[in-house]
Simulated assay, not measured.
Amino acid sequence: MKLMMKITLLFATTIGLFTLLLHDKLKLAVPSTPDNVEVLAKLPKEVDESSGIVAIATGVYLTHNDSRNKPYLYKQTAAGKTLQTIRLNLSNVDWEDITKDDEGNLYIADTGNNKNNRQDLAIYKVSLANPEQVKAIRFSYEDQKEFPPKEEERNFDSEALFWDNDKLYLVSKDRGRGETAKLYQLPDEPGSYEAQLIGSTKLETKVTAADISPDGKTVVLLGEEELHLFRNYNSVEEFYEGDYEKRDIEGTGKTEAVAFEEEDVLVITSEGGSIYRHNL
């Protein structure tokens, strides 16, 4: 009887230790969102590849999917409810970001260029009041001479767009060396242009989105599960010369979109993930 009790006790102890170890491993395997990030809602299934977002009111956003998806804008609430689906008479080659100007015009960046060989890059200007009227801002990069360039020189993809003072700003995603974010400038009016290279900064991340605060004093660049903030710059054209801060937001997944909801409040989305809010 004593032997049987000892065997039973040993078996129970072994099972307990195994369960504890398995629990710890599962906790490590499932990332949790950091304290500085609020999970607002799970994105609905129709927006499982959210690639751009813009706040049009507190708690109300427009977002879209990226390449090979329908050319739709989805009006979302902070609770994850789809209020409206806006169907645009456009192609979605590779939509990567969206921004707006002071008059409420939207700018959709069809600028995804994974292979660095596109010669049909465009930013579409759309008014929510007349979404059927679309104006195209077509462009090439002034410093791109080959389509595609050598692999290490492939820095002509952009997933990041913001507007300021009648200008559009594109930030490159360095697929060649993964170390330099280039800044390009375009007019915000329809036409065909060469995007002007106006600066660059060393940033060891692949930039997936960008935005500028309503007061124009803070620029944010998004990488995967990280934020890059720039403040106290002399001009937007040289924001990368300002004070720099990096913030980790581990556990948020494949973060692809960011926008200012208020002066010091960001909203973020991830592909196949959720809508998040972050206070600066």
Rank of each mutant, 00 (worst) to 15 (best):
N69W: 13
D94P: 01
V30G: 12
Q144E: 07
V39L: 10
I15N: 11
V219M: 03
K2D: 10
H64A: 05
E263S: 08
D66M: 01
E103H: 14
V30A: 11
K115F: 12
K25C: 12
R87E: 11
I98L: 04
T255W: 02
D164C: 13
A129C: 10
Y193R: 00
V93E: 05
V134P: 00
L168G: 03
E238T: 13
E159W: 02
E237F: 12
E204L: 12
D264R: 14
L203K: 04
E96T: 09
T8W: 15
I198T: 02
E146S: 08
M5F: 15
E241G: 10
Q196E: 13
L266W: 05
L17Y: 12
V219F: 08
R175E: 15
T13K: 10
I212E: 01
L90H: 01
L83N: 13
S270F: 04
Y169H: 09
L40N: 01
I98E: 06
A57V: 07
N130M: 10
I56C: 04
L161G: 06
S172V: 03
S67Y: 01
A122H: 03
L40C: 08
T269L: 07
Y193K: 04
E256G: 05
I268P: 01
E49N: 09
Q76P: 11
P44M: 07
Y240T: 00
N92A: 01
N155I: 00
S235G: 12
Y184H: 07
I275S: 04
H64Y: 08
A259P: 04
E132C: 11
E238K: 10
G178Q: 01
G199N: 02
D110H: 03
K81V: 14
N105R: 08
E38A: 13
K100Q: 15
F260V: 05
D48C: 02
L168Y: 05
T218E: 15
D211P: 01
G216L: 06
I212C: 00
K6N: 14
V60A: 10
E146N: 09
S200C: 11
S127G: 06
K25E: 13
E179G: 15
L222M: 08
T19P: 02
E226D: 13
S172K: 03
D157M: 02
A181Y: 04
E224V: 10
V258E: 02
E103M: 13
E245R: 14
N89P: 13
L83A: 09
L170E: 00
E261R: 00
S51Y: 03
L17K: 09
S51C: 15
K254R: 11
Y233F: 12
D243L: 12
